[in-house]
């Protein structure tokens, strides 16, 4: 397995990266942590003419906190997120998800931005971003724009990113008072792409849930905000009946894709079980 021929360039600034993207468009691919890109190239599933290595661009690095918002640079490595006190304090959902992101070696190189921009439907971080109402900052020579996570993911490996755009960072509202998160996924082996997974985020007052945000992943072509299931729990005291209502509503939200790993029916069933359990845990965590 050897990659086809390509050219390689390593810009030192965001500006020159954007110039290269503007010039080469779809014939270029961004090289960040290369945990997904390299296998794709070696299997010859993708034959870009140019790889733009953004690893030297400082403007894309780091994790910071300001005015109730956590900023995660596109180049922040998974291992950085896992070790970050800011993430642990302000984004407990992501902190809970990180140990499920592949394995140590992958987390050492793989980047937050890479995971978001690739939009693998079984990846954990895109779903966390949807549940937490993250906003993505996209840059091109045409300027900057922000896209909410819920409208960023368009389908299987498809996003709102234009050919000349680069994901710069995510801005994620920090955990507000009274809010809790819960994360669960089900994979055949630890670190594998999940057969089903759920991110829960809500205000919890006693057993009463409000501002409920459930995002499912692994079973659809993209991370999916489960609107009906979220609404079924909204404003209600968590109980066995509410759990049944959430699970039933999830059946309307989801239309899973089956594969040899698990059928569509199994994936829906798993998503329902996981969502019930995740909400159980979230309420109990108080």
């Amino acid at each position: 397995m050897k990659a086809p021929r390509f050219s390689y360039v390593r810009p030192e600034s965001l500006g020159s990266a954007l110039e290269l993207l503007a010039e080469h468009g779809d014939e270029a691919r961004i090289l960040a942590g290369v945990q997904s890109l390299m296998p794709t190239l070696n299997m010859r599933l993708s034959e870009p003419r140019l790889l733009i290595d953004i690893n030297r661009i400082d403007a894309l690095k780091g994790i910071s906190f300001e005015d109730g918002t956590v900023r995660i640079g596109a180049l922040a490595r998974h291992a950085e997120l896992l070790a970050s006190p800011l993430v642990a304090e302000h984004l407990p959902l992501i902190a809970a998800a990180m140990p499920h992101v592949a394995h140590v070696a992958v987390r050492n190189r793989g980047t937050f931005g890479g995971s978001i921009a690739l939009a693998d439907p079984a990846a954990e971080l895109p779903a966390c971003a949807v549940a937490l109402d993250a906003t993505f900052v996209l840059a091109s020579l045409r300027g900057r724009r922000t896209v909410p996570a819920r409208s960023f993911f368009h389908g299987l490996y498809e996003t709102a990113l234009a050919e000349d755009e680069l994901l710069v960072e995510a801005r994620i509202p920090a955990l507000a008072a009274g809010y809790r998160s819960s994360f669960l996924e089900f994979a055949r082996r630890h670190g594998d792409f999940a057969l089903a997974g759920v991110c829960c985020h809500a205000h919890v007052d006693g057993a009463v849930l409000s501002d409920v945000r459930l995002a499912c992943f692994g079973s659809e072509d993209r991370p999916l905000f489960a609107g009906a299931a979220s609404a079924a729990a909204e404003g209600r005291a968590w109980s066995g009946d509410v759990k049944q209502a959430v699970k039933a509503a999830l059946g309307g939200d989801l239309d899973p894709i089956g594969s040899f790993h698990a059928s569509a029916a199994t994936r829906l069933h798993l998503a329902q079980v996981l969502t019930g359990r995740a909400l159980d845990r979230m309420v109990r965590a108080g």
């Binding site: 299997m43 055949r188 082996r189 630890h190 670190g191 594998d192 792409f193 594969s259 040899f260 790993h261």
Partner: peptide
């Protein structure tokens, strides 16, 4: 875990370590 999955036409569906599940330490 382990299974060579084929479709009805004899195409192997999981010819990679991402999909052919070998037992792992965890």
């Amino acid at each position: 875990f382990e299974e060579c999955c084929y479709d009805g036409e004899g195409q192997m569906l999981n010819a990679s370590f991402a999909d052919y599940l070998v037992p792992m330490a965890a």
